[in-house]
């Protein structure tokens, strides 16, 4: 069964089409990554899944319920723009957010304690939100999202602004949710995180679905058209090689997008520079993202 089933959904705001004829199935228990440039329609799609806004056309079924907010108590949502009541204590805030999800107070208290312990915030439970650091507040917001044991968790940019330690804490918590069978949808601009964590990836661009599938399925669409190498010498040579469609220089290594025979490329390369490493790979998600939504594309 799918946790989310979106069929033929469109949504416009005035003359701007935010989402156009979208079909998407998010299987239960999966971690589904939503990627796309800013303003491409990710948040609108998420808001429609939550029935905060309604589609102009099409249907959205969430955990078997179509067109109602009936499933919302089983959804945990971490919005991109986060905010907490600054004057509330951590405990009261978590209890409030849990009880508006129809959770029993006693259960909510136990869950709050357990999550605060796990996130290293237990000694802050009686402090006001305004006393917390940004990272702590983000962890509290994450707890507020998952405290009611939702079946579906939607995280909009969950890792933005976190330091590596807190990022790892949240990442582990997301993995633990998946292990418990929770469906996780998260939108992110961090392609490496999406590659590492997501079972499937969905990319929306200008309101339209442009990618949907597992990482390997997506990479398969693009084939092995990338050479990752490390060279010593004039890097300008790379652009002059036959069949090369694009070069990205990361300093320590370079990536070429090519068509044709890689052996020819390697041979010509070795004539002009010293090659330290040479590997034919599939394009990274980051690369695919940039190919689809490069400034050239955006400005078209």
């Amino acid at each position: 069964m799918n946790a989310v089933e979106i069929s033929g959904v469109s949504k416009s705001f005035g003359s701007h089409t935010a989402v156009s004829d979208l079909d998407l199935s998010v299987p239960e228990g999966s971690v589904y990554g939503f990627i796309g440039p800013n303003g491409s329609g990710k948040t609108t799609t998420i808001r429609m899944i939550l029935h905060i806004i309604h589609p102009d056309k099409g249907t959205i079924e969430v955990m078997g319920k179509a067109g109602t907010r009936a499933a919302n108590d089983r959804i945990g949502y971490l919005p991109e723009e986060r905010g907490l009541y600054k004057k509330m204590t951590v405990n009261r805030l978590l209890l409030y957010y849990a009880t508006i999800k129809c959770m029993e107070r006693k259960d909510a208290k136990e869950q709050a304690e357990a999550w605060l312990e796990r996130m290293g915030l237990i000694e802050w439970k009686t402090r006001k939100i305004e006393a917390l650091s940004k990272g702590m507040a983000q962890k509290v917001q994450f707890i507020a999202t998952v405290i009611s044991r939702p079946k579906l968790v939607i995280l909009d940019e969950p890792f933005s602004g976190l330091d590596p330690v807190n990022l790892d804490v949240i990442r582990q918590a997301v993995v633990a949710l998946k292990e418990q069978g929770t469906t996780v949808i998260f939108s992110t601009h961090d392609m490496e995180m999406a590659e590492r964590m997501c079972d499937s990836i969905f990319m929306i661009y200008r309101g339209k679905k442009v990618l949907d599938g597992t990482l390997s399925q997506i990479q398969q669409q693009y084939g092995e058209d990338t050479i990752r190498m490390s060279i010593e010498g004039d890097r300008g040579t790379l652009n002059r090689l036959p069949g090369v469609m694009g070069v990205r220089d990361f300093g320590q290594y370079q990536e070429l997008r090519f068509s044709g025979d890689p052996q020819v490329i390697m041979k010509q390369l070795m004539e002009s520079v010293s090659v330290q490493s040479f590997a034919i790979t599939k394009p990274s998600l980051h690369d695919i993202f940039v190919r689809i939504a490069s400034p050239k594309e955006i400005n078209e």
Partner: peptide
């Protein structure tokens, strides 16, 4: 305050 502090989106995902 709820609008300015961006609390409201979280709330309306739980309540109408």
């Amino acid at each position: 305050e709820e609008k300015m502090q961006k609390i409201v989106e979280f709330l309306v995902s739980s309540v109408t």
